[in-house]
Write a protein that binds this DNA or RNA. Structure first.
Lengths: 364, 364
DNA sequence: CCACCGCCTGATACCGGTATCAGAGTCGTG
DNA sequence: CACGACTCTGATACCGGTATCAGGCGGTGG
């Protein structure tokens, strides 16, 4: 007769009873440890099969202290960048027998703290986080995990205040290359979309950098790369050419529109996110301008769309899947006993040259 | 002095000891149940604060039997459609105090079964699944969850063999509307990208439908919608105009190229996925043709890119976030005690008319 | 023939919570 | 003054696994 509990599946005790053996013997066979004679083993296996036994992972974690689960904290699952990264994490985790819990923070530090607590409470074995934290006083939630013996690996974004393994790309260098290409084509008025989300446009370069380092790490790095390229070419920095304010596509349309309406208007735009690119494209259309003839364009995060645009867009491709896979690998290795290297693992991005960059038009 | 265990955070017993009260009293205060005098409560709270106590969610789940966790099974987290859907699920779950575990199957039924087992083992309270299962003999893994008292809600894809709540859009109707629009513009040679992934192109309409119903539910529905529109307009079905084979962008380029090279070539293409659209665009360019002049285009799954293409693309927008949010809502309501309605919850999709549809060119 | 040894099994403590319940302590009342 | 009622606390069983360990049983050697 089948189990009489109806709900919630049979337990090891019920399997043991069905097989007429002790609980410990059933546990040994089903758990795959200790010794059990072939005869009893067969009886237990048959009973388990018959009752449809599945081990309770919660109970197992309780007594072993490991959950075979990784926690991942990202800004937004809905963003294709993080979606791809997550796929990398989950592919390699699954392959090594680990499940994944994903939490989104929407770039909100308060949410990130809550997420870290959820993962601590659920006793995940390790955490991968694309953190919005930068300053020393913003990392208590990650320290809390570390203190409890939960290893943490950073991904996409380094956190200077924390000496941890981080898997990233060289954002600064990628941005510099892109802007250098624009400069090489003859551009001197190059817009930067998007900068830090501050209220007032920073008047000086120093103020801008300060604002940037109060915000997202990747954004700050990309801004530095933009500045590097300008400096190398002795092009003076113009605060009017960097977008500030909320990071929405609407805002981009407005800001790029403004840069396009300047007396000494922008002849190229560098976008650090895909929304920046679509917004710029809309602003261009609204101004009745076309690329690459009137304005050249380069952006971050390649996609199938960028390649089918007419003309196709020059883009920086990030190794999204690899970023996630490597982060998982580093974390899993630590869990397997490796000493944390506390290194910066820098993956290669790639500038894909297509047809959205041309020399600037002869302006009146 | 702080806890001496170093690892793994303090337990309720340690907090109780620190506060010099019984374990049960500490548990009552921290768990927020039963009665505790204000004085002891304050002592316990202070001790917990001091030691940095966090409840072990695993232990709690063990004894209460609920985990406050939902499991979600989707085809691919990397796909923007599912990423958006997941965001919907996770937003409403979090708001109601539930965490989410996500598993990807890559349309592989074997992976789907493994995913269901993981969720059962982890004792999730409920499951949301975009299932690749269709036939009666493919749903054992979902039945297993149901048998254990874990409610299941289907999303994006209905499963006829299972009488469950399902949150979907009317794929058939959406496809019909799109194709009707093409027909209204004068088209009679309309390509369908993509059809079922079979080896041999089905020679007859019956064979095609049979192949479709052996595969993904959404694909079958969209194909039926295409056929509906053709029938209504008395346009004969031509098997040469439906793509079969593996669902990759490469394959689309090849197949659409073929349809474009036909003596009586295609003058419009209807795409059921975003990869179908980007692939078609590449095929068009390769053939030296442009839209909407030479070929009209309509596709599924709107995105920011579709709006900034030149000309902008006419697209069917799915309420991705809402799909996920509604599925979570239905599931959470069942968990809160509501009787499962076992209904089909059909959400509205929207045909966004932009500029990729025009009358067919006068062909020689 | 008994002692000893190794093989195998089942009893049991434990993980960290929840939930029940007995009983200590306080107070009011007959 | 004693007793019942009520308030509050802590002991304890339990959830479903893991892991340790005592002891039963059969075989071998003295």
């Amino acid at each position: 007769m089948p189990t009489e509990r109806g709900q919630a599946g049979p337990t090891i005790s019920e399997v043991a009873a069905e097989a007429r053996v002790g609980r410990a013997t059933a546990a040994r066979t089903l758990g795959g440890y200790g010794y059990v004679s072939p005869e009893l083993r067969a009886r237990v296996l048959a009973a388990a099969e018959k009752l449809g036994y599945r081990a309770n992972a919660l109970a197992r974690s309780m007594s072993t202290g490991v959950s075979h689960t990784l926690g991942v904290i990202v800004a937004d699952i809905g963003n294709p960048f993080f979606a791809g990264l997550l796929r990398g994490v989950s592919d390699t985790s699954r392959a090594r027998g680990f499940d994944v819990i994903v939490l989104s923070t929407y770039e909100n530090l308060r949410e990130e703290v809550a997420a870290a607590n959820v993962l601590i409470d659920k006793r995940v074995d390790g955490v991968i986080v694309a953190s919005a934290a930068l300053q020393r006083d913003q990392v208590a939630h990650l320290k809390a995990a570390l203190d409890r013996g939960i290893p943490v690996v950073l991904v996409d974004r380094a956190v200077a205040a924390l000496d941890l393994d981080a898997v990233v790309i060289d954002n600064r260098d990628a941005a510099r290359q892109a802007v250098e290409m624009l400069i090489a084509a003859g551009h001197r008025r190059i817009g930067f979309v998007w900068g830090p989300p501050v209220g007032e446009p920073p008047a000086t370069r120093r103020e801008l950098l300060a604002a940037a380092s109060r915000n997202l790490w990747t954004d700050g790095e990309r801004l530095r790369g933009y500045l590097d390229a300008l400096d190398d070419a002795h092009i003076p920095f113009d605060p009017e050419l960097v977008m500030v304010g909320p990071k929405t596509e609407e805002r981009v349309v407005h800001e790029v529109g403004r840069m396009l309406a300047l007396p000494d208007r922008v002849t190229a735009v560098f976008c650090t996110e895909t929304d920046g690119m679509t917004g710029s494209l809309r602003a261009l259309r609204a101004a009745g301008l076309s690329y690459p003839h009137d304005v050249s364009l380069v952006g971050f995060d390649d996609s199938a769309w960028a390649a089918v645009m007419d003309p196709p867009l020059t883009m920086i491709e990030q190794p999204v899947h690899q970023l996630g896979a490597k982060a998982a690998e580093v974390l899993l290795d630590i869990l397997a006993g490796a000493e944390p290297a506390r290194d910066m693992h820098t993956l290669r991005s790639r500038l894909i040259r297509r047809s959205s960059v041309a020399p600037p038009p002869a302006l009146p």
